[in-house]
């Protein structure tokens, strides 16, 4: 749900990073935080457990620049990936404008990817959204791992609507900004359509 603020001449959009536990959602946000100009980003808020697992969400506000005199601000959220935090995941999808699915490329995690993708579809539906209709990008993370599955096989198992796909190694930044740019662009294009 985009928020257009004429008083502050700002437009705010919400992007949610979704995916299985330990897939690299928080690492994406940490990389973006670390590499963004401090003047254009807010604090990275992490509601995490003592062992650094996301408990509720991570949140990073980011200014991308100005379009037609309006500051474009993106609010990036992650969800907790662990299966039992489903109630929290559902809440974070409220008002979402675009979703990045961060899949884990390790062969042993394919089932978790698929389960999380199904969970995304079902939770979006509960909030009244249809994944087929909202801006959506697939990121294949951990491409540097020894057991990473072949790209084509991952696409075959995870693609749902010809969405853009990005290979990534989030801890070293590979593919992180490409993914962000792609989803931000899709959200803005959607905004143009619905404006």
């Amino acid at each position: 749900m985009t928020f257009i603020n004429y008083a502050a001449r700002e437009i705010n959009c919400k992007i949610v990073y979704y995916g299985p536990g330990l897939g690299g959602k928080t690492t994406n946000l940490k990389w973006i935080f670390g590499k963004s100009n401090p003047a254009s980003r807010g604090k990275l808020i992490s509601l995490a457990t003592e062992t650094d697992r996301t408990l509720f969400f991570d949140f990073l506000p980011l200014d991308l620049g100005t379009i037609r005199g309006f500051k474009t601000r993106f609010h990036l959220y992650t969800v907790p990936g662990q299966v039992f935090y489903d109630a929290s995941r559902k809440l974070i999808l409220k008002g979402v404008d675009g979703v990045v699915f961060v899949a884990d490329s390790q062969a042993a995690r394919m089932e978790a990817n698929q389960e999380s993708l199904k969970n995304l579809q079902s939770n979006l539906k509960d909030q009244g959204y249809n994944l087929m209709k909202i801006p959506y990008v697939l990121q294949l993370n951990k491409r540097d791992t020894a057991s990473a599955m072949a790209l084509e096989e991952m696409k075959r198992q995870l693609l749902i609507k010809n969405e853009p796909v990005f290979e990534a190694v989030a801890h070293s930044g590979t593919g992180v900004f490409d993914t962000l740019k792609a989803i931000a662009r899709m959200v803005l294009v959607e905004l143009r359509k619905t404006a």
Binding site: M1, T2, I4, Y6, A7, G128, Y129, K133, T194
Partner: peptide
Amino acid sequence: MPTSDIILLEEDFRV
């Protein structure tokens, strides 16, 4: 879409 966008106009903001 389930929720509609919020548009905050200047006069509403002032109020």
